[in-house]
């Protein structure tokens, strides 16, 4: 063709220029490269700042908690805080034994888990192994609704519905405010977490494992309990730890239904006070910011933060470390 340029040095130049361009600028699919104008760089910088904001939030939380906690421990020795089991921050004779609150929190979380683990795991097994897809399509959104109910509503439910039932069963000398009713609704609250995260983990187990077990003559239950559950074990355990961490951090339901009685007893029919409920109680009163009541708020919050953070990190570690990789 006449119009076509002849082969020659000119075309080589174009070709090398193109190659140069390709090397220098046009490798956009690799993140972090690509052509940018000055305005683009400005946007890049602004977006970077928004991303670092989350780091500053964490730093802010830690600093805020540490600052007041240190102030608190200047006035109250460490041993009074961690070495005692009686709490009376609002009385004239102040005692700051945090174990009373930690125990209250633990008791409610344990009751909650005792309710939520059987319900949640069974629900997850049913949804993942037994349920026809159509039923699952109905049940899962309902569980999501359960997860979306505000916690103050659960508090109302515990106080007005669950607590009277418990009093009917155990007799009138059980108080309206008791750990059992709070624990039961906390359990109800975390069922969706266990159910949905465990179901995800179980559904990720490849079909071939199940089919191998069926080929050996296993029943559905045997496949669920001996093949799928062990294979999804890391995900299931992680979901339970996450749910426990949510139960520990839960505030409104335990404030409303748990009663405000920090104590170290084992009877779930008595009123208890959790760390979160104590923080709410002190926040509702108008405590001056220089008072010891204000500072102890942060010391308790620090304990709570370390506890839940630890649980979340363990959950992440479990799901990474013990994950069964297939394929």
């Amino acid at each position: 063709m006449a119009a076509q340029a002849p082969h020659g040095p000119q075309q080589d130049t174009v070709r090398s220029l193109l190659a140069e361009l390709w090397r220098e600028r046009l490798q956009p699919s690799r993140p972090g490269s690509g052509r940018e104008t000055p305005v683009g760089r400005l946007i890049h910088g602004a977006l970077f700042l928004t991303a670092t904001l989350s780091a500053f939030v964490t730093i802010g939380i830690v600093l805020v908690l540490i600052f007041e906690t240190v102030e608190f421990f200047r006035e109250v020795p460490l041993l009074d805080f961690f070495g005692s089991t009686s709490w009376s921050a609002l009385f004239a004779e102040k005692q700051f034994g945090v174990w009373a609150l930690v125990w209250g929190t633990g008791m409610i979380a344990l009751i909650g888990l005792a309710v939520a683990i059987p319900l949640g795991l069974m629900a997850a097994i049913f949804l993942s192994e037994y349920s026809p897809p159509r039923l699952r399509a109905i049940v899962k959104p309902i569980l999501e609704i359960l997860a979306g109910v505000p916690t103050v509503v659960f508090g109302y439910f515990a106080l007005v519905s669950v607590s009277p039932v418990i009093r009917d069963i155990f007799g009138e000398d059980v108080g309206i405010y008791n750990a059992l009713s709070a624990g039961i609704v906390v359990g109800l609250m975390i069922v969706p977490i266990i159910a949905s995260l465990s179901e995800d983990a179980m559904r990720a187990v490849p079909r071939s494992l199940r089919e191998g077990a069926y080929a050996l003559g296993s029943t559905r239950m045997e496949v669920s309990l001996r093949v799928v559950l062990p294979a999804a074990f890391s995900g299931v355990v992680a979901s339970i730890i996450l749910a426990a961490s949510r139960a520990v951090g839960e505030t409104m339901a335990v404030t409303i239904a748990g009663g405000g009685n920090p104590q170290f007893g084992v009877n779930p029919l008595e009123a208890v006070q959790t760390m979160t409920a104590m923080i709410v109680q002190l926040s509702l009163g108008d405590t001056p910011t220089t008072s010891i009541e204000f500072k102890v708020l942060f010391a308790v919050a620090m304990t709570l933060f370390v506890l839940t953070l630890g649980m979340n990190i363990v959950a992440q570690w479990v799901s990474r470390r013990f994950r069964e990789e297939y394929e």
């Binding site: 991303a51 670092t52 989350s54 780091a55 939030v57 964490t58 802010g60 939380i61 805020v64 908690l65 600052f67 007041e68 996450l242 961490s245 949510r246 520990v248 951090g249 839960e250 505030t251 979160t276 923080i279 709410v280 926040s283 708020l297 942060f298 919050a301 709570l304 933060f305 839940t308 953070l309 649980m311 979340n312 990190i313 992440q316």
Partner: peptide, 24 residues
């Protein structure tokens, strides 16, 4: 680090955000 941090922030009890808000 940012990614891990975000997933950890999602697990912080809401009342602790309240204390952060109170101070900041």
């Amino acid at each position: 680090m940012i990614q891990v941090n975000i997933s950890n922030l999602a697990g912080v009890p809401s009342i602790i955000y309240g204390l952060l808000g109170l101070q900041v």
